[in-house]
Every structure is written in C-alpha cells, then in structure tokens.
Amino acid sequence: MTAFDVVMQQIVNGLVLGSFYALVALGYTMIFGVIKLLNFAHGDLYMVGGFVGFLVLSAISGITGGGWTGVAISMFLSMIAVGCLGVVIERVAYHPMLRAPRLSILITALAVSLVLQNTVLSITHGQYTAFGADFGFGGVNLGNVFITYNQMILVGIAAFLMIGLEVFVSRTQYGRAMRAVAIDKDMCQLMGINVSGVIAVTFLIGSALAAAAGTLAGAYYGSVWYFMGFLIGLKAFTAAVIGGIGSIPGAMLGGLILGFLEAFGTQLPGIGSEWKDVFSFAVLILVLVFKPTGLLGKSEQERM
C-alpha cells in the first residue's frame, strides 16, 4: 500500500469512528446545554441502547434476517426505549437535584451510570454478547482501499440522524424552546415556556441518539457488553469539548476530529493501537487546558 492508500484507509476508519463519537457527543452537549449537567450516565445509555438493539434484533431476525432492515428496525425501537429511559432518569434522579450543589448532582450522575452498568453486569454476568447482525462483506474498491457497504450505510445513517437533529433544533418550535432554555432557564419559565417539558425532550433525543450509536456499534463490531459505554462516554465527552460543549455543530465536528485523530494517531510511530486510548485522553487534557471553550463554543465565565 502506498502512503496515499494508508491515508485514504484512515479517513474511512476515522469517519466510521467519528460517526459513533459524534452521535454520543450530541447527547452530551444537548443535555449540558439545557441543564449544565455533565451526564456521566450518557455512555451507559449507549451501552443499554446496544443491548436493547440486540434484544430486538434477536426477536425479529427470524422475519427480517440479520441484515440492515433488521438492524434499522432494532435501532429505531432501541432509540424509543432508551429515549424513554433517559426521560425517566432525568425525572427520578436529576430533576430533584437541579438546585443542589454541583458536586451532588455530579455524584448522582455517576451513581446512575454505575446502576445502569451493574444492572447489565448482573444480568449478563459480564460476558460479551454476540450481536447476531449478518451483513456480508460486500463493498467497493477505491484504488487499494476497500470500503464496505456497511461502513457507507453506517456513516449514512449517522449523517441522516444528525441532519434530522439540526433541522429539529433550528426549525421547530421545540427546537427554538430548547435553544432558549439553554440561554436562560428562568426567563423561559417567565415567558411561559414549559421548561420541564423541554428538558424532558432534550433527554429523550440525546438518549435516543446514544442508543442509535449503541445499536450501530453492536451491529458493526459484532458484540455488546456492559462496560462498552465507559470508554466511548469519555471519548464522546472529549469530542464534545473539542467542538465546544453546548454547541450542536461543535459536537458533530468534534466527533469527526477525534475519530480522525485516533485513526491517524494509531499510524504514528510510538503510539500504535495499544496507546490509542491514552492518546485520546491526552488530547482531552490538552484541549481542556489550552482551549476549554472548544472550537465552536462560546466563552463563558463560569464558577464551579
């Protein structure tokens, strides 16, 4: 392979990886936007999404087969289920804490994350569960670079979801309300906006996007397990910070940048795949230290 092929191959890899990161990062950034909470449980919603997708696919694969039709239906149902789970979590755990000190709500979010993780751990006994999607290995050759149809469909679905979100946020009534709540919650309340409703919708959408990513990742990588949300949760947060936390286009951009950084980072001498995760965290720390507002974020004076 020539250097050009390596670059092309890593662009493809980065795009796939970046799609996952971006979908999860969107939820982080939206939830952060409306209630200024870093939802530690977000990565675990991705994980639960993967498991729900797996369950649905196992139930329907007799009829639809394990191909993309089945996966798309599983993804859709998983998005609904996990979206509702996200709303329940917000109502039960975060809503009573909104006026509490930040340390308390952060720990609550951590507790929710641990409850989700360990519930799945107890059910699955910590085993990897084979996903059972069956795609085949078709694809196209671009020079020496082979791109599978799966990769294209996956990136396509991710792009479709992100465009849908962008339209929702910029064109609809609820989207406008969401942007308003992100700016000034108390004023929105005074203007008659149903702030609790907007927060619920934000959790619904954010969690649903994480579930979509979880199902797609399960189908793409072939298995799901209880701890799969941990690393991607951290990395999606990194992506959200790179793009500027609170900014929706920022999350998409940050996801893609992190995907590319990681894909190309593994090619650098001395990094390789075993140092890949360390590399991502180092990027996170560097971004936080030197540009905490990210690329598209607004600078804000915030006290802890």
């Binding site: 870093l38 952060l106 951290l234 947060f237 360390v278 965290f281 996170l284 936080l288 915030e302």
Partner: peptide, 23 residues
Amino acid sequence: PTLRLRSDYLAIVTLGFGEIVRF
C-alpha cells in the same frame, strides 16, 4: 493546569488521568 477549570471538567480529567496511568 486543570484545577482552574469547572469542577465537572476536573472530574472527567481525573477520570481520564486514572485510565492513562492504568493503560
């Protein structure tokens, strides 16, 4: 460098640091 940041950023940096050390 990180203690200047918001407390939730600090939380996640420490999480990342813990993983860096283990890796």
